[in-house]
């Protein structure tokens, strides 16, 4: 009787011990991947999120998209839920270069690898890998196109994206690296329009009221370029003011073909998203040897080469 009780006792202890192990590291066996996107209110980010999800599913994972609505606290809530639910990996498009670091750090502490897509966080040691557009070089090309089209003299405006996003500044810096070499070009307005089309239209309307003589506007993304173009068109200045964007959205590509927009930088959201999903798969399969940051080249799209991008 005593012997049978002892065996039963050992069995129960073993079961408890093993089940405890399972609870401590659920991500080891999970086949779920979280895709956290800064906003789904912009078709570019929808494409990014859906491409990441699709590739993760192709690789055999269950993938769920979370929309942070450009709100850091919403993003934190998502990370709380993802960590609690024991997801295997996070494909992450951050809302804020500084504000998102804490979320990635918490995921790392929970042993969940994070692969940043498109937007960068200001920390080297927390994300497993950051797959980013080479915004700076892309906007150097846009800056060159600006000079070719607008010339070396005149007043111009710039619409910035979210001020907390590194992409905003990398794009602006790349553009200014070129344009600032020409003292005849004077930036008379630089305002944020939060990467948003409607905001850009309103901001551009007010810029036009104060500076009706501008010859060009550089916008940090295509949504803002479309908004700026609407304002320029409504003011009857579409021939005078050249509009430049960045992203490679379909609307703007069509706009370039129709002569409404001069140029944009063609990013590769699909490539970034697929690469992030594939890296996550590699990591979960045991290969953890990555560069911390992988820039992806951005190509300038103009009327000269638009056909190869619209195909």
């Amino acid at each position: 009787m005593l012997k049978r009780s002892l065996v039963f006792f050992v069995l129960v202890i073993s079961l408890v011990a093993f089940s405890g192990c399972g609870e401590r590291s659920p991500q080891k066996t999970s086949k779920r991947v979280a895709v956290v996107i800064s906003t789904l209110n912009n078709p570019w980010f929808v494409l990014l999120g859906e491409s990441a999800k699709a590739r993760a599913e192709e690789l055999g994972y269950e993938a769920v998209i979370f929309d942070s609505q450009n709100n850091s606290s919403k993003e934190t809530e998502h990370f709380d839920n993802i960590i609690a639910a024991g997801y295997a990996a996070i494909l992450f498009n951050p809302t804020d270069a500084d504000g998102s670091v804490v979320n990635v750090r918490r995921a790392k502490q929970a042993e969940i690898p994070v692969f940043c897509m498109d937007r960068e966080i200001n920390a080297r040691d927390v994300a497993t890998c950051q797959i980013l557009s080479d915004n700076f070089s892309g906007c150097v090309e846009i800056g060159k196109e600006f000079i070719r089209t607008v010339g070396r003299e005149g007043n111009y405006a710039e619409l910035l994206g979210l001020v907390g996003d590194n992409n905003t500044w990398n794009r602006s810096r790349g553009f200014h690296t070129v344009v600032d070499c020409f003292p005849g070009l004077k930036m008379v307005a630089q305002q944020s329009a939060d990467f948003d089309r409607n905001t850009a239209m309103m901001v551009m309307e007010s810029i036009l009221q104060a500076h009706g003589d501008i010859v060009g506007v550089f916008c940090g993304n295509d949504a803002m370029a479309m908004g700026a173009y609407q304002a320029v068109l409504a003011a009857g200045k579409a021939d005078q003011i050249k509009v430049f964007g960045f992203d490679g959205e379909k609307d703007v590509l069509n706009g370039i073909r129709e002569g409404k927009i001069v140029a944009t930088g063609m990013q590769s959201p699909v490539l970034m998203a697929r690469t992030a999903a594939e890296f996550a798969h590699r990591y979960l399969s045991g290969d953890q040897n990555f560069s911390k940051k992988i820039p992806i080249a951005v190509h300038a799209v103009t009327r000269e080469n638009i056909d190869q991008f619209l195909e």
Binding site: A97, E120, N122, A123, R124, L132, D134, N135, F136, N166, W169, N170, R173, G174, S291, K292, K293, P295
Partner: peptide
């Protein structure tokens, strides 16, 4: 690029 806090510094 891995040696820099952010890509801005690298640029």
């Amino acid at each position: 690029i891995d040696d820099y806090e952010n890509t801005m510094d690298f640029n």
